[in-house]
Design a protein around this nucleic acid. Sequence first.
DNA 1: CTTAGTCGCCGTCAAGAAGC
DNA 2: GCTTCTTGACGGCGACTAAG
Length: 302
Amino acid sequence: MDGSIDDKSEDSPSSSGSSQPQNLSTVVHTITAVPTAIPNQPVQVQSVIQPTQQSVIQAAGQIQTVQVEEDGEGHLVRTDTDIGIEKRREILSRRPSYRKILNELSSAEAPGIAKIEEDKEEEAAITSIQTTIPSYVQTSAGQTIQIAAANQNELTTQGLQTITMTNAGQGAVTAAAMPAGTTIVQYTQGDGSQQFVTVPAGEVQAYQIRAPSSLPAGVVMATPTGITSPQQLAEESARKRELRLMKNRYKNREAARECRRRKKEYVKCLETRVAVLEQQNKTLIEELKSLKELYCHKAETE
DNA sequence: CTTAGTCGCCGTCAAGAAGC
DNA sequence: GCTTCTTGACGGCGACTAAG
């Protein structure tokens, strides 16, 4: 069950994401779990959480204050059934991202925890495609052919220096989900990095290399010139679709990596918090013990 | 040595959220 | 409304380990 957390202790302002307690003393909070599948049903949860954790979830989900009453057995029961439930459920239908959670945690926490940086690696990401795709190409014993650019000015404005066409229609390429006979068009940029596009065999000479604005810098679409028949148009659109899918898959691969990294970081952060809290709990228990002893000793002497 | 089970990592897809 | 981002779920793969 995906539950929201609502603070029942003293000053729980649902409006403020900024007024977070800075000390890490243990506070008993009431967790009001809002069932997403069974609406308006009171739930009974009590737990001990930290102020920062509570503030995180408040900030992410903008939780409202809810009425909580104690039932006969000492459980805390949520009793409000009126406005805001739908909205809250809507808000909570998806948990906030790890990036948000961890950044909130970091801002509330001591400065030891680093924030998750925004992605500023767009260029690096595009560079890494060059290290991925060549593995399909280098294993083939393809014939390399130098071709001339159809529009030299256009190419030079894109920073291209050489264009190399690699005839790589062997098994290594077909294993990479490319049709047999597919030709890889490879070109080298000014910085020495390489890019690849796929072109069906037999159509190479009819192609003009261009760089459409919709693609990331450096990725080139190969567009056939003089296509007239519906079949060629269909092939062309299929090719474009495949290229788009390849691009999406690549981006998602990177995104999944990032997501896993953030998740790991988030879990690590939580584990650290658990360790800290356990230690604090220990200390507090010891403190309570010694105070009790002191009090008993004093009472005995009087 | 082989096999089965487990674990961690990865790529992909799909769905929802967020941005424009 | 469309595109991009984020993340859960799923399956595949390799490494490791214990049992036979």
